[in-house]
Each structure stands twice: as structure tokens, then as C-alpha cells.
Design a binder for these strands. Structure first.
Lengths: 248, 248
DNA sequence: TATTTATGCGTAATTCATACGCATTAAAAA
DNA sequence: TTTTTAATGCGTATGAATTACGCATAAATA
């Protein structure tokens, strides 16, 4: 029951997560399809009464993708009175009622909810996305094929990607990569996030002079050509660089 | 009465403002001294039930300094369970009770409050800061002489100034200046915000090539030397630059 | 007239971003 | 073994942006 669930949580604030994932070639966003209706939204959740805000975001992320140690950052609070972007409030309420099979008018909470937006970066291949009790499917979607979402979630994604593009110049984004990766992969990652291409040789020169990249003895074999080297992040140097705010 | 005031507001979220002001030579922060106790905090307030978050921040700013058209931006939500940084929760409660002369244990609200942090930029000489009902004095303080504040407000200021220093590279900060100003003043502003010095000639070359600066016929007379020229911002070009995210 | 700052221009050194050439290496396929 | 296909690791040129600093001149008041 939705009422009992809400009892242990803050009622005026929630958390929504724009979870960016990289699959080796493009950056995608994780969306959830609600039960019984053909509408999607960002994964989100409530903050427990005795839970720190950032801890709540981390828990919600973990519930959805089973991962904790990822880059997760606040980027905006969405606090308009009416946060239904595409459909009006009544229409949205009806959709939610149809989806969860409950009469929302019976629920004593009758006010708008602010939502703290977080964005997360992770490697798609490391996770298995799991729907929550209101949703029946999780899907990674390309940035350019996101449908009309419930609430103000299109706006959230838009602001999250713009924030990421700005921030990426000052922070390494290793959390989107697998533990071991090739230089071509990290280049594709940057190209996908920033939506432009780089000259391979210049990119290699710049990235390899960063000391948080460690060249492994291993190679990725399998294709009909010279095998590319594998690299990994030096965790402590990576964090130092994050701290110092290095750029790329 | 605090109870009736709170009735029309959201109870789990509040707004706190780090208001930066420039007086022609250094950047300062506006602090409020609570009644009956020797403790200071940032100006803040509640969000009304039917008021957008950003509108609430704007209203709170206006109540405190009488100005509306200033740069005002969210920078973080503070959501720890215990937001009393220096003194523990009990001690802080006692201080507040002593200050407002009410028994907080009688108030039905018994949970922590999240706070959305905003920072604002304005010209000190344009405003007259007014205390609210809980505070008896507003004072502009230098960044390096801020005392231990109530709640987590030292942390808020710290994060706000770091955010401002990062953002200032992408946004003109004209709201800190008077309507008419000299090149030396805008240089002092940048130096104060970024806490470093610039070569005057290079600074002048860069700033004057920005087309949102308009040189006036007027000069600032009075001192025993050549009078410096006055400048103003071209409002529409200034906003364009803000929009485009120009840097300096 | 002396002193003090404001103004505006020039120039060199340096760093950084970007474009692109080329020789070599190594994996699998033919 | 040879061929094909990428991967790797240089080098180099160009232009833009940053930074440091010299210097001539203007215009206020003391």
C-alpha cells in the first residue's frame, strides 16, 4: 500500500535519478516503464525520515541497479508548483491511478512534491537494472530517442546532460567505463558524452599523459588486427585528480 | 507565533541564501544575528505551500534586501540528518529557544529539515539589509572573518564560494556592480571573487573587447589624478552573454 | 608645475588546441 | 606465408589564447 510506504518517508521531497550508462559505444539513460500504461519516467524514490539525502539517492540507485560505488551527484531541485510538463495534473493523476490501481484522492497527502535531481555515471555492462514495485520494465535509452516522459522528467534529463557536459571538462568520468578498457573505448566515451569527435592521435597524447591511467600488460584479443592495449584507472590518483578538478 | 507561520509553508524543506555583495573593493556575505544570543546565521526562510521553489528564494531575498532583479542560483541541497555542524542538536535547540522565546518541544514538527542553498550576487550599495522577526541585525562580513555560524551555514558559505569561483569563469557577474563602474572596480571585483590579481593591461584588453560593456561619456571625478571612465552593462548583450555562457 | 593615476598600444614568450603525416607493430584471415 | 586491418607512437606545423611587461600620453588635483 502506498500509504504505509509513505509513512516512513519525507512527504514533501523526493529523489529522481538520471542514470547515465556507457555500453562501449554510446551513452544511454535508464528509464522505467510504469505498469498498465505506456508511459516512462526516471527511476526515483522517497527519502526516509532518518536518512541523509545523499544516502537516500545512493539507496535508490542501488535498489534499481544494484551498484553503490558510482559517481552520483545532485544537479538541481525541481520545485515548480505543477511539475507535469506535457500532460496536466489531472491527466497525470489519472495515469498514475491507472498504473498503480489505487485511488489517489483517498490518500491524505495533497500537496506538490519537490524533487532533488541526481545524476549517476556507470558502466551498463556491470549492472542489471531491476524495476521497482510500480514499474514493469527498465530500459537503457539513447539520448536522442527518449519519449515524452511523465512529470518534468524530460526537463530533468535535459538539464542533467547539460550539467554533465559542463562538468566533464573538470572531472574524469571513469565510472562509466569497465574496469579494463582500451584507449579507443575511452575516446568513444568522451565523444559520446560531448557529442563530437576527436583526433585519435591528439586524444591519445592527452589522455596517456594523465597519470591516473595505468597501462596493463593485457590486451583485448579477438579481432582480425593488432590487439589494443587494456588500461585501468589508478584509483587513488583518479580520486586525487577528481579532487583537484583536473580537466580534459 | 511560529506555529501559525509554519502552517502555510512546507515543513520539510527550507531555503537558505548566501548573499554575496561587493562594496567596490571586496566581496562580502550577508549574515543575520539572532535575537538574545550571540550567534549568527545565513538569511533563510520557508517555502509557501503554493509557491515555486525559485520564487520562494526570490521572495526571501527580497524580504531581506529589498531587491528582486539579482542573480540568484541554487547550488546545493543540504540534507544531512543532523545539520548542526559545531554544536550538537540539543545545544542548538536551546540556543534557538533562548533566542525566539518559545518552547520548541511544544511544536508538533519534530523532524529534520532539508535546506536548498541559493547564492545571490548584488551590489552592497544598492541595498539596505533588514533583519527578519527572529534576528536583530544584518551585517556584511568579509569572507575571511566569518564566525562560527548556527546549523551547517559555514559549510554552505564554503560551498557557495567554491561554486561561485567555478561559475564565474562562464558567467559575467555584473549583478555585484553598481550601475556605473570603472574598469578598476570590475577588476577588483574579479580579483576579490577569485582571490588573485591580474595584470591591469591584460585585464583591460580582455574586458573591453566584451561587447556587453558600454563606455560612458561620464567620468568619476574627485581624486587628485586623471578621472577614470565610467562603464555600464548593455543589459540585453549582458543577458545574451550569460545565456551563451561566455567566459572570462 | 609636480605628482599621481588612468588609458591605450605594442610585443615577446609560452602554453594549448588542432590538424595531419608517417613508420611500425601485431592480430587474424586468406 | 602473405594480406588485410587496426593499433601505436612518434613528429611537426599552425593558430589562438594567456601572460608578462615596456612605454608614451592624458588629465585630474595639490
Amino acid at each position: 500500500m502506498i500509504v504505509t510506504y509513505l509513512e516512513n518517508c519525507l512527504k514533501e521531497v523526493s529523489v529522481d535519478c538520471v542514470i547515465f550508462g556507457f555500453d562501449g559505444s554510446t551513452v544511454k539513460v535508464l528509464l522505467s516503464k510504469w505498469k498498465n500504461i505506456d508511459y516512462w519516467s526516471l527511476p526515483g524514490g522517497r527519502i526516509k525520515k532518518m536518512e541523509a539525502l545523499n544516502a537516500a539517492a545512493q539507496r535508490i540507485l542501488q535498489e534499481r541497479v544494484g551498484l553503490k560505488e558510482v559517481f552520483l551527484q545532485q544537479f538541481n531541485v525541481f520545485g515548480e508548483i505543477n511539475r507535469c510538463e506535457h500532460y496536466d495534473e489531472l491527466e497525470t493523476t489519472k495515469l498514475i491511478e491507472k498504473s498503480i490501481g489505487e485511488d489517489l484522492s483517498k490518500i491524505p497527502i495533497k500537496h506538490r512534491v519537490l524533487s532533488v535531481g541526481y545524476y549517476a555515471l556507470l558502466d551498463i555492462n556491470k549492472v542489471k537494472a531491476i524495476p521497482d514495485e510500480y514499474t514493469e520494465e527498465c530500459r537503457w535509452m539513447e539520448l536522442n530517442e527518449i519519449p515524452l516522459l511523465l512529470f518534468d522528467h524530460n526537463e530533468m534529463i535535459d538539464l542533467a546532460i547539460r550539467t554533465l557536459r559542463r562538468e566533464v571538462k573538470y572531472q574524469p568520468i571513469g565510472n562509466l567505463l569497465p574496469d579494463k578498457f582500451t584507449l579507443a573505448e575511452i575516446q568513444k566515451l568522451y565523444e559520446s558524452v560531448l557529442d563530437k569527435t576527436f583526433d585519435r592521435r591528439n586524444f591519445y597524447k592527452q589522455i596517456t599523459k594523465q597519470d591516473f591511467l595505468v597501462k596493463l600488460a593485457e590486451k583485448r584479443t579477438g579481432s582480425a588486427n593488432k590487439s589494443p592495449n587494456l588500461y585501468r584507472f589508478d584509483q587513488s590518483k583518479y580520486e586525487q585528480a577528481l579532487e583537484a578538478g583536473m580537466g580534459f
